[in-house]
Amino acid sequence: MKISYSPTPLEAWISHFYRQLGITSPVELDEQRIARSLDIYLIYKEIPSMAYELGRFKSITIDKRLPLFIQREHFYHELCHILRHSGRQIMMPAAFRELQEWDARNFTRYAALPFHMLSNLEFDQPGIIEELSTQFGVTPVLCEDRLIRIREKVLRSAHVTKPNQFLSFDIM
């Protein structure tokens, strides 16, 4: 089943960013390549994953004890912090820190499975989640979450655009 889907502004931005780097297929999604293009020092160590920025120096440390698929997801999460956030989370109010973490999880879904690489897929084919997991090098859980959100957005859009269908409110 082909779907009609409009990407969010963030999804469109990520696809544009990848295309500028010449990244058009899942095999080209390489953490080293992405980090190098942004002058980010990428480190793999046996410590929790984190992003660090001081002036023009930027680094992402990935916990190398984690499985490779999860390391990749951590990379996208930390990349979001460098590209979209500022401040030290340890010093910010909990609500602001939670907002940044929500944004990083959302960014991870889009960066790991970018819209321009999904647009020609058959979403209802058997084994699609496992196929995406293998192609994109991320966990099946992330792939399933991404597909669920795409389906929900398509269904919401189809529901709202049906002719002669209006929301009504009772006014008391």
Rank of each mutant, 00 (worst) to 15 (best):
2 K>T: 11
3 I>F: 12
4 S>D: 12
5 Y>V: 02
5 Y>A: 03
11 E>S: 08
13 W>H: 09
14 I>V: 15
14 I>T: 04
14 I>R: 00
14 I>L: 04
15 S>A: 11
18 Y>N: 04
20 Q>H: 09
26 P>F: 09
29 L>H: 00
31 E>V: 08
32 Q>M: 11
33 R>M: 07
33 R>Q: 08
33 R>L: 13
37 S>R: 07
39 D>E: 12
40 I>W: 01
43 I>S: 03
47 I>K: 14
49 S>C: 03
49 S>P: 02
50 M>D: 05
53 E>L: 06
55 G>K: 06
58 K>L: 04
58 K>P: 05
59 S>A: 15
61 T>C: 11
62 I>N: 00
64 K>E: 07
68 L>R: 13
68 L>Y: 12
73 E>F: 01
73 E>P: 02
73 E>L: 03
73 E>V: 01
74 H>P: 00
75 F>I: 07
75 F>R: 00
78 E>F: 07
79 L>S: 02
84 R>F: 07
87 G>F: 08
93 P>E: 14
93 P>D: 15
95 A>M: 13
99 L>Q: 12
101 E>P: 05
102 W>S: 14
103 D>W: 01
104 A>R: 05
105 R>I: 00
107 F>R: 06
110 Y>H: 14
111 A>M: 08
111 A>H: 01
111 A>V: 05
111 A>Y: 01
111 A>D: 01
112 A>C: 14
113 L>T: 03
114 P>Q: 03
117 M>R: 05
117 M>Y: 03
120 N>E: 13
124 D>M: 05
124 D>Y: 01
125 Q>H: 04
125 Q>W: 00
130 E>G: 15
131 E>H: 09
135 Q>D: 11
138 V>R: 01
139 T>C: 03
144 E>K: 12
144 E>T: 06
144 E>Y: 07
147 L>R: 07
151 R>L: 08
153 K>V: 06
154 V>E: 05
155 L>F: 07
155 L>P: 00
159 H>F: 12
165 Q>T: 09
167 L>S: 10
167 L>K: 11
170 D>E: 13
172 M>A: 10
